[in-house]
């Protein structure tokens, strides 16, 4: 008896050891490229070309970040990225929750119809070209509004929030109704404040989606440099890197003036610096919202 327990323990210990090592390896594989990018972004540009930068900078320098921020284009793109993300998130959250509230009212006569109309949109998409033609016909080309307007309410988020509102006690709205409050007031004063836990997650998803997108800039706003976003600037750098390897002209793609490009910074360093600027805001936020993710995701596998 004692012998068998001991054997199981050894097997268990071996498994635990393997599992721990595996997890540490996973952490290294996940974090290494990111840490390496940070190191390169803080390393002197010319020194980076010699190679051999791994976990920390060899010749510490803030030149790359300076180059990124003194050039108007990247700074402007950063501002546009922030503006579109904030605006999209605020409007999205408010509108989606308001609609979700109406769809959570069992007595609402159009509830089912509106729900079906929205849920259908999760299963089909008109496609790139019909959408492109629509945006063109609405005169949203090269217009800041194209970053916000086409994605104000998404069916998936709508279902997530509606499902959450359903878990709140009905008596809250009922008693307010008896006291004479209208639906808009009930929504604003009672339901909306109570939805904060689920809204934190949905806001993160919306913000990440908006902050990370480059395709809408590419497709709809590439005609106006002042509407460019951070991700799109990075995409242009990446594209020029795939075309020509290590060409100093690449730095000009983001408007770093020729003198700076020749002497101090290189395309690789600039790319690293922009990558860090473009990813830091989200990486600072997501760990704090981690425990809510599962609520948002589990609704994704709801059966219809």
């Amino acid at each position: 008896m004692i012998k068998s327990i001991k054997r199981i323990n050894i097997g268990d210990m071996a498994f635990n050891l393997f599992n721990t090592v595996f997890m540490l390896l996973l952490a290294v594989v996940t974090l290494y490229p990111f840490i390496n990018t940070i190191a390169v972004s803080f390393n002197d540009g010319m020194d980076t070309i010699r190679g051999g930068i791994y976990l920390w900078p060899r010749v510490f320098s803030l030149q790359n970040y300076k180059a990124v921020f003194i050039t108007g284009t990247v700074f402007n793109a950063f501002f546009i990225s922030v503006a579109r993300t904030v605006l999209a998130t605020v409007l999205n959250i408010f509108f989606t929750t308001m609609l979700a509230y109406t769809l959570s009212r069992r007595e609402y006569v159009f509830r089912k119809f509106i729900t079906v109309v929205f849920v259908m949109t999760m299963y089909f998409n008109a496609g790139i070209i019909p959408n492109y033609l629509l945006i063109r016909d609405l005169h949203l080309m090269n217009n800041f509004l194209v970053y916000v307007v086409p994605s104000l309410v998404a069916a998936f988020n709508l279902i997530v929030i509606r499902t959450y509102i359903r878990t709140l006690p009905d008596s809250l709205a009922e008693s307010a109704k008896i006291d004479g409050a209208g639906d808009f007031r009930i929504f604003m004063q009672i339901i909306f404040p109570l939805c904060m836990p689920v809204l934190a997650t949905v806001a993160l998803f919306v913000a990440v989606g908006s902050w990370n997108s480059w395709f809408d800039t590419f497709l709809y706003c590439s005609g106006r440099q002042e509407l460019s976003t951070l991700q799109y600037e990075l995409m242009k750098l990446l594209a020029s890197a795939t075309q020509t390897n290590n060409n100093p002209a690449m730095a000009n793609a983001v408007g770093v003036d020729a003198q700076t490009a020749r002497n101090l910074v290189t395309p690789i360093s600039i790319r690293a610096a922009i990558t860090i600027v473009a990813s830091t805001p989200i990486l600072l936020v997501y760990p704090f919202l981690q425990k809510h993710f599962v609520v948002g995701l589990s609704v994704g596998s709801v059966k219809e």
Binding site: V109, F110, V117, N125, A126, P130, L133, L134, L152, F184
Partner: peptide, 28 residues
């Protein structure tokens, strides 16, 4: 239910415009 209708119909029109109207484009 006029309040509920006011709070939801603008979005119904919105989704019809942005997700359903482009389906006309399939004719092309």
């Amino acid at each position: 239910q006029k309040q509920l209708i006011f709070m939801s119909f603008p979005f119904l029109l919105y989704i019809l415009l942005f997700s359903y109207a482009p389906l006309w484009g399939w004719l092309t």
